[in-house]
Design a protein around this nucleic acid. Structure first.
Length: 506
RNA sequence: GGCCCCAUCGUCUAGCGGUCUAGGACAUCGCCCUCUCAAGGCGGGGACACGGGUUCAAGUCCCGUUGGGGUCACCA
């Protein structure tokens, strides 16, 4: 069996394409079939060469590797539709000869005019009026031979009905009177989607056409083409459309449809795929009845079945996507994986990331505090650059300056106090071990800092917070940061004390 | 407007006639934890669109209404 996605290179890589790719990929893999990618670039007016590479790159980023595609090739090459134009023209000719199609010589202006007239007449039929359907054979040939531009149209039946068998919805019946004679071959000699997709799917051996619901109403046309060519019908599966918050079809104007934009936001491909996998499809529940929100593509391949795919168009909710991404950062990825993904964002912010151990401890301590990588740089700026006092932090600092001046010697004393203790090579913080270079250690450990600061607060008879917040402001310039002991440890004694001195002296 | 598809909390969804006083997740609210911010834990509010059937019994089946969406291009 074989599935495919057939994206059109006309713009940014669309999440809808990623969504379709996921279904096609998962279903093909589950059935040990092939997943192929074909580029549908027959619309020369909207064609965008960059778009093609970006779509292919998107799939690579997502890890949805096609078995056949323009880049990896395959037995049915080429996988770029315009390169198959001769094939399409041949099929169009066959259809013309068998009488299943005909030439139409209407100009765009004529069609437009008649369409308007039809609308003005409030006719419910808005399709082609079939003016040239019964043009005598000789006239058709002669005008074509004389060089008059024409398109090839499908001769759809005038009576009866066409039944589309959709795996998810069963039989969908369309009356012939609702169909019109769609263009198969355009005046420029290139095929329209209807012809090209059917021919290519057939020639490439596609067995399951899994595509968005918006194609459902043109499927009878496709069935007609397939039948006229004498080909076996594939299984048609129309999946619900991803929606904007207002339930309309997901669009650029109302939502972020570009996968690249999510990538820039700092959404991990695993999280995006996981999120897309819970749109319309639902993973079987856990044994305790709770729903399973976190799963991989491999899990999907294991559990996927069309019976668990709903038919209502799901609203794409960025909030939940972000939450899921945060979940991956906190619970699914290893620290190392989080760091690897974070580094490019930190570098782009201009931070020096050469000290891997340092970067790692910074990221680690921030892990429960960001859910999208692009948010990270701002949250860790003070770890890489000097302190920039925020307004509220300045006020706190002023408020506690007296206390800090007294605290300073306590902290400076710390190293001496613990000389008698053994040297420690790692700093142990509850629940994690942060490797540090030994020169930063001495008394500068979580335990000693905590003891010292609590003792100090007790002696001064103030709440811990009265010490912590001014200290936090002094050392980070902010009022919201990870735990102070962690921050002091990561910063290291020298830098922390230096910042503290600097703050109380101004 | 014609045709086609769809219909459970604001959102993603579970539910395949009785176990539903409808379950989970995001969001939201409250409490706990706590040096701040998060994370985490606990708890609250919150839905079967409506009307007819069928049936001993309907969120679950059928019909209609309403609502939403899609589609009617020499775009895909």
């Amino acid at each position: 069996m074989k599935t495919r996605i057939a994206p059109s290179p006309t713009g940014d890589p669309h999440v809808g394409t990623a969504y379709q790719a996921l279904y096609n990929y998962v279903f093909a893999k589950q059935r040990s079939g092939a997943f192929i990618v074909r580029i549908e670039d027959t619309d020369r007016a909207r064609f965008n060469p960059e778009s093609q590479t970006r779509i292919l790159e998107m799939l690579e980023w997502l890890g949805l590797q096609p078995d056949e595609s323009p880049v990896v090739g395959g037995p049915s090459a080429p996988y770029i539709q315009t390169e198959r134009a001769a094939l399409h023209q041949g099929y169009a000719k066959a259809l013309l000869e068998s009488g299943a199609a005909y030439r139409a010589f209407d100009t765009a202006a004529e069609l437009e005019e008649r369409r308007k007239a039809s609308e003005a007449a409030k006719s419910s039929y808005r399709g082609y009026d079939r003016r040239d359907r019964d043009l005598p054979q000789f006239e058709s040939e002669a005008r074509a031979a004389a060089g008059e531009p024409f398109v090839v149209r499908l001769k759809a039946p005038l009576e009866g009905s066409v039944i589309v068998k959709d795996v998810l919805r069963g039989d969908v019946v369309f009356q012939a009177s609702e169909l019109d004679d769609k263009v198969l071959l355009k005046a420029d000699g290139l095929p329209t989607y209807h012809l090209a997709a059917m021919c290519d799917d057939h020639d490439m051996g596609v067995t399951h056409v899994i595509r968005a619901e918006e194609w459902l109403t043109s499927t009878p046309i496709h069935v007609l083409i397939l039948e006229a060519l004498g080909w076996e019908l594939p299984q048609f599966i129309h999946t619900p459309l991803l929606r904007n918050a207002d339930k309309s079809k997901l669009s650029k104007r109302k939502s972020n449809t570009s996968v690249d934009s999510y990538r820039e936001l700092g959404i991990a491909p695993e999280a995006l795929l996981n999120y897309l996998g819970m749109m319309a499809f639902s993973m079987p529940a856990n044994p305790d009845g709770s729903s399973r929100e976190v799963f991989s593509v491999a899990d999907l391949i294991g559990a996927f079945t069309w019976e668990r795919v709903g038919l209502t168009g799901p609203v794409f909710d960025l909030e939940k996507l972000k939450w899921l991404n945060g979940k991956y950062i906190r619970e699914v990825f290893t620290l190392e994986e989080v760091v690897t993904r974070a580094v490019p964002f930190l570098e782009r912010a201009g931070f020096d990331v050469t000290d891997t151990a340092y970067v790692s401890s910074v990221v680690d301590v921030l892990r429960p505090r960001f859910d999208v990588f692009s948010d990270l740089p701002e949250k860790v700026r003070y770890f890489f650059e000097g302190v920039q006092l925020e307004e509220k932090a300045r006020a706190k600092l002023e408020e506690g300056k007296e206390l800090l001046i007294e605290l300073l010697p306590y902290l400076e004393q710390l190293a001496q106090d613990v000389e008698e203790f053994d040297r420690i090579d790692v700093v142990t913080v509850p629940n994690r071990v942060i490797p540090m270079s030994t020169k930063l250690i001495n008394g500068w450990t979580h335990q000693f800092l905590e003891d010292a600061i609590i003792r100090f607060a007790n002696e001064k008879e103030v709440k811990l917070g009265a010490v912590m917040q001014p200290l936090r402001a002094a050392v980070t310039g902010r009022l919201e940061t990870p735990g102070m002991y962690e921050v002091l440890l990561i910063l290291g004694r020298e830098r922390a004390l230096e910042r503290l001195r600097g703050a109380v002296m101004t």
